[in-house]
């Protein structure tokens, strides 16, 4: 079953355009949603949650259409926005008491279990929590109302490496039973290398690629060649950089002839991101 199915989402702003966004997240998996700042990650996430109106397209969550079953589906969605605080001067206890009334499946036992697990003190104010703790509080809330799909916008940005690693471990633990699915956006590619099953890459409002992680990386090759070789292959490269020894460039694996003597290696996600954004600059 698909936890999330986005089909041809379009949204036009004056200076920005989300174009035909389509991707699917299988139930029980973690999908990393990567892209540079301003690529459209948050806009896509807001569209999924119906916070912004899309111009066209369809969003299905857990097999139901979001536009038609918004209130019902929001019972099953947990969300966290890494950089937005709500009622930060209120105590956790106060906020929880208000929030829990909205959810028909709220379970106090689960809630206290996670508070304990995440080391959250009910009497602390939101403003007293560290960035990582705030995300954990959002997770505790989501899990206590039995959310099946977690949509997290930049949950790891602003976190130190230890807190990040800790959070990623929690993500993996959550999807283990196959009931919960996670979509999280980030621009920190090492997060995804650690824990994502699927990767969706958005660039300038368009989905460049959405695939299973290994497959995603296999789609591209990083080439290292001499200056003379550059002209031969230039047209096929997604983007390249030259240096005194020659060039390095990114290419679609299908466009590369393995019999040529250009050195090739598997790129990491960061390199893929960098070369795609370089592509844009080259045409300017």
């Amino acid at each position: 079953m698909l936890a999330l199915d986005i089909k041809n989402l379009n949204k036009k702003y004056e200076h920005f355009h989300l174009q035909n966004i389509s991707f699917q997240l299988e139930k029980g998996y973690i999908m990393g949603f990567i892209g540079a700042n301003g690529a459209g990650k948050t806009t896509t996430i807001k569209s999924i949650l119906n916070l912004t109106r899309m111009d066209s397209g369809e969003i299905d969550i857990l097999g139901k259409n979001m536009a038609e079953h918004e209130v019902e589906l929001k019972q099953e969605i947990g969300s966290a926005f890494g950089d937005i605080n709500f009622y930060s001067r209120s105590k956790i206890k106060t906020l929880t008491n208000v929030i829990k009334r909205f959810y028909s499946n709220w379970d106090d036992e689960t809630y206290y279990k996670y508070l304990k697990k995440f080391n959250l003190n009910e009497n602390k104010k939101i403003s007293e929590l560290s960035t990582g703790m705030k995300v954990k509080y959002s997770l505790a809330l989501a899990l206590s109302h039995g959310a099946k799909l977690l949509i997290l916008d930049e949950p790891t940005s602003g976190l130190d490496p230890v807190a990040r690693d800790n959070l990623l471990d929690i993500f993996q633990e959550l999807v283990q039973d196959g009931e919960i699915s996670i979509l999280f956006s980030t621009h920190i590619t090492s997060d995804l290398e650690k824990c994502a099953d699927y990767i969706t890459y958005i660039h300038n409002g368009q989905i460049i690629n959405s695939a299973e992680k290994e497959q995603f990386v296999d789609t591209y090759l990083l080439l290292n060649g001499k200056k003379e070789q550059l002209d031969m292959i230039k047209n096929k490269l997604i983007a390249y950089k030259t240096n005194s020894f020659g060039f390095t460039g990114l290419i679609h694996t299908k466009d590369f002839d393995p019999s040529s003597d250009i050195k090739s290696s598997a790129p990491n996600l960061e390199e893929i991101m960098i070369y795609f954004s370089k592509k844009e600059d080259m045409y300017v």
């Binding site: 949650l49 916070l51 209130v71 019902e72 929001k74 019972q75 969300s79 926005f81 937005i84 605080n85 709500f86 009622y87 929030i99 909205f102 959810y103």
Partner: peptide, 10 residues
Amino acid sequence: NDLIFTSILP
């Protein structure tokens, strides 16, 4: 940020 807070609720 009441607007987002409330809009996320069901």
